[in-house]
Design a protein around this nucleic acid. Structure first.
Length: 380
RNA sequence: CCGAGGGUGGCAGAGCGGUCAAUUGCAGUAGACUGUAAAUCUACCGAGCUUGUCUCUACGGGGGUUCGAAUCCCUCCCCUCGGACCA
């Protein structure tokens, strides 16, 4: 028996996520028949890697398929506050509506979705002439303690006790205000952003200016959906890691633009992709902190129908086709599958998946945007 | 604004008038070893080339003292921590 349309929507929205806060709230929203609004915000901090490009877009496609109105928010103000791209607001805006937008659209093509259905919104355009936005920032701020905001500073990719200028404390309330000011029901981000979303939910019922309302006019909390953060390809700072410490070190393991070889960028050449993945940390039999396996799980086995073909020399066992992640993981754990064969297969699979991006970035107009960004990053 | 302590190579952190291109740790690069990576070991690790007991540029910026300064003096900038001011 096929699932009911509403159940189908719920399943699309909640699949492949690290967490959803809360599923109950989501169900209520779906069943109320409300036309759902989604948003995900990005800092324009440099080149797009597989995390922002593919993981986010996969979910965005799910939301679109579930009939949700999706918005990719180009957070130029936040980027400026966080000193990215040299802290030059004009440059940031240019890269946001140029390179970044093109890159994200191309990623959507890789996944078979329609990029034209995504609403791209630049922060500056949202705030301009909207006094009420800043009122919302204050409204949010009045409902969160200083200590709370200070703790949430990790959403900027900064350490909790790091010395920061004051503007950085305005960032979290702004991010929360973004949600309410746009009337977002589904606040979407990586796990690293959960502090902002939890604040949003905590203040939601106390807001006076732009609370989120249901059809009956009651204040409600936005639903927070958090996707997985891909592991970086490098070796963990300490290894092995005791299981109970796993949570603490997770953020230091994530893929990071600042560590060039810990990540693959969406427009990397096939040679770069092969090289990076080949150099990846990948202990034989290790299934928990293994970036290559993690990538296979999240990037390749994203649909029920996904498959991964391992081509290896006859003497190592010959070809083998995996049609679900579980059996791949099991063979890896039992060392029936060698890391090198896994690496080769994952690399080739990603190269193929990203083909549309490379094609898009081969166009002179788009290529130029990437070159200009490269120059900017180098200038620092 | 006042007082104290600081600003050294990608980071951390020594040096405190010559022997400093600057100890050391981490990171990075290359090679050896493993059918991958990691670990380990070896070399490199400011730039340049004629690869040398070579040249240039360097210890927040500028100026000065000295045969000679990362090291002393002056000045400016910035950071940290206290304090003062608060119609």
């Amino acid at each position: 028996m096929p699932p009911k349309p509403k159940e189908k929507k719920i399943n699309l929205i909640k699949r492949n996520l690290e967490e959803i806060i809360t599923e109950g709230d989501l169900r209520k929203l779906i069943h109320s028949g409300e036309k759902l609004k989604h948003y995900i915000g990005f800092e324009i901090s440099g080149k797009i890697h597989l995390g922002s490009g593919l993981i986010s877009m996969m979910k965005i496609k799910d939301f679109m398929d579930a009939g949700v109105a999706v918005t990719v928010f180009l957070a130029d103000w936040h980027t400026w506050i966080n000193d990215k791209l040299g802290g030059d607001h004009e440059k940031i805006k240019k890269v946001a509506v140029g390179y970044f937008k093109e890159g994200m659209k191309a990623c959507m093509k890789c996944l078979g979705g329609n990029p034209e259905k995504i609403n791209f919104l630049l922060g500056s355009d949202l705030y301009r002439n909207h006094n009420e936005y800043w009122v919302t920032v204050i409204d949010v701020s009045k409902n969160a303690s200083l200590a709370r905001i200070k703790r949430s500073i990790t959403i900027l990719g900064r350490k909790e006790n790091e010395g920061v200028d004051f503007a950085k404390l305005i960032y979290p309330p702004m991010q929360v205000a973004d949600i309410f000011f746009q009337g977002v029901h589904l606040a979407h981000a990586g796990m690293d952003q959960r502090k902002a979303h939890v604040i949003a939910r905590d203040v939601a019922l106390n807001l006076k200016i732009k609370p989120l309302l249901d059809k009956k006019g009651n204040k409600i909390k936005p639903v927070a959906v958090h996707q997985h953060i891909l592991l970086g390809l490098g070796k963990p700072p300490s290894w092995p890691i005791p299981k109970d410490k796993l949570r603490d070190v997770w953020t230091s393991l994530k893929m990071s633009k600042s560590v060039p070889d810990s990540c693959v960028f969406i427009h990397d050449t096939p040679e770069e992709i092969r090289r990076k993945i080949n150099n990846a940390f990948c202990p034989e039999g290790e299934t928990i902190l293994n970036p290559v396996l993690d990538w296979a799980k999240c990037l390749i086995f994203r649909e029920k129908s996904s498959k991964l073909l391992i081509e290896r020399p006859q003497k190592f066992g010959g070809k083998i086709l995996y049609s679900d992640y579980r059996s791949l993981e099991q063979d890896f754990r039992t060392k029936k599958l060698h890391p090198m064969d896994l690496k080769n297969a994952v690399a080739e699979n990603l190269i193929k998946l990203l083909e549309p991006v490379r094609r898009h970035f081969a166009k002179p107009r788009v290529k130029k945007m990437l070159q200009e960004l490269d120059k900017m990053l180098l200038a620092k």
